[in-house]
Structures are given as C-alpha cells and as structure tokens.
C-alpha cells in the first residue's frame, strides 16, 4: 500500500511533479511533427534542445527523489496545517483571478474600484467605509497615472454598457 505521508517531503513531491511534467513534455516534443523533415530530427533540429532538457530534468528528478530517502537534512513540511491561513491565501488567489475576469468583463476602471476593497479586506483591513474611500482615491490615481499619463490602453469591456466608463 502507498504511504502518502512521503509526499509531505518537499523533495519527493516536487521531484514527482517535475518527473510527470517533463515526461509529458518529452512525449509531446517527440510526437510533434515538423514540416521540415531535415531539421526536425538530429542535433540541429527543433526537437533537440527540448529533448536534451527534458531527459536531464527526468534524470535529476529521479536523483532528487532517490536522494530524499537517504538524506536526513531534507526540508520536511512539518509545519502545522493552518486551514484558516490556507483559506485566506486561496481567497487572495481567487481575488486576483476575479480581478482578471472583471477587467475583461467590465473594463479596468470599475474592476479596480471593486477589487481594492476586497483585497484590503483579505489583508485584514476590516473598516468597510475606509476601504471604500481608499478604493475611490486609489482607482483615481491608478487611472490618471496609467491611462492618462502613461497612455496605457484601457481594455474594452465585454459588456458594452460599461464602455461608458472606458473613456
């Protein structure tokens, strides 16, 4: 039976992940068809560098996993699992993806105004009114600096209604 506790060892878990990824990428490049047959194979073809790199990564990943069974000084994830902190970190990642989604949907200005209070809240700033005020001022500063002064293209919102806020 597999002892999954071994995955708490960072060397083993990262080694296995790299091994799987590089095996996939090795098969991907070996099976790829290139139009120019003469340069597709051999040392000078487009397959050569990815092949050598992936093989080396596979060998080193195996070495990493193998060594972790004998090395007593390996980094172990012995820290207590703090579900609250993990949940907050997940919230942060979700908020960034939400910002990306909102920017595409309603444009830069409104999405920034929505996301700043949310991020401030995730970073434990719990005064809602203060966060809203900071968000208003912050959005304005970002808008003036990036869009007006630096001339950054304001992404066109998917929802046409919000184009009015794109200026």
């Amino acid at each position: 039976m597999i002892n999954f506790k071994i995955l708490k060892n960072y060397d083993v878990s990262s080694g296995i992940t790299l091994l799987i990824i590089s095996l996939f990428l090795l098969f991907e490049i070996r099976l790829a068809e290139f139009s120019d047959i003469s340069t597709g194979e051999g040392a000078i073809g487009p397959k050569s560098a990815p092949t050598y790199l992936n093989i080396t990564i596979i060998l080193l990943s195996i070495l990493l996993i193998f060594n972790s069974f004998f090395n007593k000084n390996i980094i172990n994830n012995n820290s207590k699992f703090n579900s609250s902190l993990v949940f907050k970190k997940a919230q942060l990642i979700a908020a960034v993806f939400l910002y990306l989604f909102l920017t595409d949907l309603v444009g830069y200005l409104l999405s920034t105004f929505i996301i700043i209070p949310l991020l401030l809240f995730i970073f434990q700033n719990k005064n809602f009114k203060k966060n809203l005020f900071i968000s208003f001022v912050g959005t304005l500063i970002y808008y003036i600096f990036f869009i007006k002064i630096l001339g950054l293209h304001n992404p066109d919102p998917q929802i046409e209604f919000f184009e009015v806020l794109s200026f």
């Binding site: 700043i116 912050g138 970002y142 950054l152």
Partner: peptide
C-alpha cells in the same frame, strides 16, 4: 497590510501593460 494590496494591483497593471 495596506501596502501589499496596492503592490498586487500595480503588478497586475504592469503585467498587462
């Protein structure tokens, strides 16, 4: 905890720009 949200947003815009 007040600085980091703005660092994140600046990074977001820098990546876009």
């Amino acid at each position: 905890n007040m600085i980091y949200p703005f660092v994140l947003i600046t990074g977001f815009i820098a990546a876009y720009s």
